[in-house]
Simulated scan of single mutants.
Amino acid sequence: MNQPRTSLTERRKAATQLDIARAAAELFARQGPGATTAEEIAARAGVALRTFYRYFRSKQDAVGPLLASGGDRWRTLLAEAGQGGDLAQALQDAAVASLTPADDTAEEALRWTRGLLRAAQDDPALRSVWYDVNRESEERLLPVLTELAAPEADPVEVRLLAAAATDAIRVSLETWAATDAGTTGEGSPAELAVRCLREVAGGLRLLAR
């Protein structure tokens, strides 16, 4: 499945949004969402306040790109698997690769995600951002799975798989965030994702073929 190429302007925009997201996550972790202002986030990211509001409606919205980055990588890796292989295994392999930190930046992003998911328990606006990220991830996963599934696959089953797989990743991250487990090994996001995806595979005919 060919991925559309992004322009330099789009890449710069995405980089700025991620910088703002990291600044917001850092401040949220240090002092909590309630005590953090959009002005502080903009200053920490090194952008003007008007730039912040050009991209985000609220301070909670600002962490969306960070929360979405893992799902973006998961779908990219999954799309590279190609049609005709073991779809259940491809889902697991892509999940492990995207949830296993390859460097310090990825490790830090996972730890920020843990902090944000913990903070979301007491912040409805932040929790809403997390749910929106997962809804959008499901929508973007559907065409990837449609491309990978056999031509005769039932569209309803493919849609159900997109929903179930997205929720499997969500549950694995939320479960991990509620513990003190590391980012690798037992209890890690990758280990939990494999467990959740195997449960999904056991209940869907599309993955049992």
Rank of each mutant, 00 (worst) to 15 (best):
A163D: 15
A25C: 02
R159A: 10
E26N: 04
L192H: 11
A21C: 14
V171Y: 13
V96L: 04
L161M: 02
A43N: 06
A38H: 03
L142H: 11
T179N: 05
A120Q: 12
A208Q: 15
A94Q: 03
T76K: 08
G34F: 11
Q17T: 02
E26S: 11
L49P: 05
T175K: 07
A90E: 01
W176F: 03
N134P: 03
N134Q: 13
E10P: 07
L160R: 14
L173M: 12
A48M: 06
A181Q: 09
V200Q: 11
S172G: 01
L110V: 13
A42Y: 01
A150R: 13
A48R: 04
E136G: 09
R73D: 07
L141D: 09
A95Y: 00
A120V: 09
I20R: 01
A168Y: 06
R209S: 13
T51M: 00
V200P: 10
E138F: 04
V129L: 02
A162V: 00
G182E: 14
L27K: 04
L173K: 11
L206C: 07
E107S: 13
E39L: 07
A88N: 02
E40T: 04
E147L: 04
F52Q: 01
L145N: 02
L207D: 04
R209P: 15
E80K: 12
D93G: 12
S58A: 11
G84F: 05
S69P: 05
R135P: 00
L110T: 14
A208C: 09
S188Q: 10
R198T: 15
R198H: 14
R30S: 15
W176G: 00
A102I: 13
A21R: 06
P65D: 07
G34M: 07
